[in-house]
Simulated assay, not measured.
Amino acid sequence: MSTLYPEQQLRRRAMAWALQLKVNPKRVDIAEMPKKWGSCTSDGVVTFADELAQTDKRFQDYVIVHELLHLRYRTHGKRFHAMLSALVPDWRELERKRLRSNE
């Protein structure tokens, strides 16, 4: 059992993915985000919803990878989706399930 708070675990998970993806976010924040799970600014600040820390690890990975890939690919183009699919093969299913549970 980890002694880290859920938000700290989420930040640590994000930084581990950043190393694997070879991207360097300027900052990783955890904040209240009632309408979305994450965001990435053009200057490299990645923010995750505090509620994301309470979701399952597979969904966390999807959101983390999605936002970190924006440090390399600004838009949701072919390369973005190819990388996302390579790293989180079931991302479409995860996204559908999460959208359904938020309706």
Rank of each mutant, 00 (worst) to 15 (best):
M15Y: 14
P34V: 04
N24S: 11
D56V: 07
Q9K: 15
A16K: 13
T55K: 04
V65Y: 07
D43N: 15
H81W: 12
L99S: 03
Q54I: 08
L68N: 06
V28Y: 03
R12Y: 13
P34L: 06
R100G: 00
P6Y: 08
R96L: 11
W17H: 07
R12H: 11
P89D: 05
H66L: 08
A86W: 10
D61A: 13
H81T: 08
S85K: 11
A16H: 10
N24R: 10
M15D: 14
V88S: 00
D56N: 14
M1P: 02
K78S: 12
K57C: 01
F80W: 03
F48T: 00
P25E: 06
D90M: 12
S42M: 12
E51N: 08
L21S: 11
Y73D: 03
L84H: 00
L10H: 09
P89V: 06
E95F: 04
A53P: 10
S85E: 10
I64S: 06
V63I: 10
R58I: 00
Q8V: 09
V28H: 01
D90G: 09
T41D: 10
S39V: 07
V46Y: 01
K22F: 03
A53L: 14
L52G: 00
S85W: 09
L19S: 08
K22P: 07
N102K: 14
A14N: 01
F59Q: 00
V88E: 01
Q9L: 11
